[in-house]
Design a protein around this nucleic acid. Structure first.
Lengths: 224, 224
DNA sequence: TTTTTACTTAACAATTTGATAATATATAAC
DNA sequence: GTTATATATTATCAAATTGTTAAGTAAAAA
């Protein structure tokens, strides 16, 4: 199973924020919210979402401005952006699409429609995006199920690979043991306490590199 | 620039057909039109469009039915489909997306919006599919159903050929067993667990070359 | 009809993987 | 420094996965 996709929602109406947050969380997405343009930019930089839902009309920088600013930085070149627009102002819609938005949704919004669109966007996006993670000397190619260490291929078993890919998907972030269990083993399967350790050990052994560090009492993190 | 992309538009309202045709033609697309569901299917088979714009409400098979029928044939597995829906009938929209549509547009339509969406979709989908795949010493001609190995023709049975062509369509990518089953056998047919293995074995045998590698617990990939 | 070909399945061998138990080691708390 | 707790390490074994061969079936070709 892959990592939960992150979505940032920016809207000045509290109701909409809550409705969207609730519905998208129920689909398994990880959500952050912002109440205005400036906050949206700030949160985007911290949260690094895969998708940003931007209301066009917001105080302190509108959605289009936010989109333009974010798109300038290479970090957000490939981030999906959906605009939320109050009326069917055609000019705005077009402008939005040309700014680099990937879709737009007209208010009043319907939770089901939004969830559908979001799912569809990710489905499509998954196909085109290259799932390669590069950190330092390590290159993790989820499509090829390959790990390259200084150009040399290292062969990991499935669980090992998935575990490494999970940790490396967000270098620096500490993954709780529970998080790891949920992501790799799912909620149904129950495995013993030492299972994660053993897999971690095998990864360390095979990579011969100290890139996974233990945070005692908490979990593990990937770092160079 | 490559060959003009082909778009089939199916709608029972003459006005809409004309407006869309005019606008999309102006963008350089090659257009075919249909006035009802049956005609849409017929034209699709002849015209082999890259994108189909389907009105939901049409006489003789509605858009969803057309979509379902087309998606059954592997020829249209990767064709883009956009639904055109009259009112924001939420249920229909959802159903459409789950049927395999890639997007939907709500009437009343705006030519500009549609052109934008179409352009955006193609931009995203721009994975040029060549009928001939060349990797190393191997040449796979999907049109002629022929495999050449170092200039020598190798004769593969149909399933073998399709399997090889699928794997070779993206060298390096690991295809999950499920993916393979869906692509080659379709969702309806159910075959045993060892079927894929046996075909893989035959391909390996006939090619006498180690170009398909197993990723245990995951699937197979084509590599030189 | 007979023969050939393509496809699928069954059965078993070979291999790999994943989980656990048992023990050792490190780290934090006292 | 000692104790308690968490993690590391290793070996072992069961389960899951794939490889291989042979054989059966149905459709196409001769």
């Amino acid at each position: 199973m892959s990592v939960a996709k992150k979505i940032l929602i920016a809207d000045d109406e509290q109701d909409i924020l809550e409705i969207l947050q609730f519905n998208l969380q129920a689909e398994g997405y990880e959500i952050a919210t912002a109440k205005n343009g400036d906050e949206a930019i700030e949160k985007a930089r911290k949260f690094i979402p895969d998708l940003i839902i931007l209301d066009i009309m917001m105080p302190y920088k509108n959605g289009i401005e936010v989109c333009n600013i974010l798109r300038m930085s290479p970090q957000f070149k490939n981030t999906l952006i959906i605009f939320l627009t109050a009326m069917s102002d055609e000019g705005t819609e077009i402008k939005g699409l040309e700014t680099g938005a990937d879709d737009f949704i007209t208010k009043p919004i319907s939770p089901k429609v939004i969830v559908s669109k979001v799912n569809a966007l990710f489905r499509r996006w998954n196909k085109t995006e290259t799932p390669i993670i590069k950190v330092g000397d390590i290159e993790i190619d989820r499509e090829r199920y390959m790990v390259m260490l200084k150009g040399e291929g290292v062969s990991l078993a499935r669980k090992e690979f998935e575990l490494l890919a999970l940790l490396a998907s967000r270098p620096g972030k500490v993954f709780l043991r529970n998080e790891i269990l949920n992501q790799i083993w799912g909620t149904e399967v129950i495995v013993g306490d030492r299972t994660i350790d053993v897999h971690i050990r095998k990864i360390r052994q095979k990579l011969g590199l100290d890139c996974i560090s233990t945070v005692k009492g908490v979990g593990y993190k990937f770092e160079i």
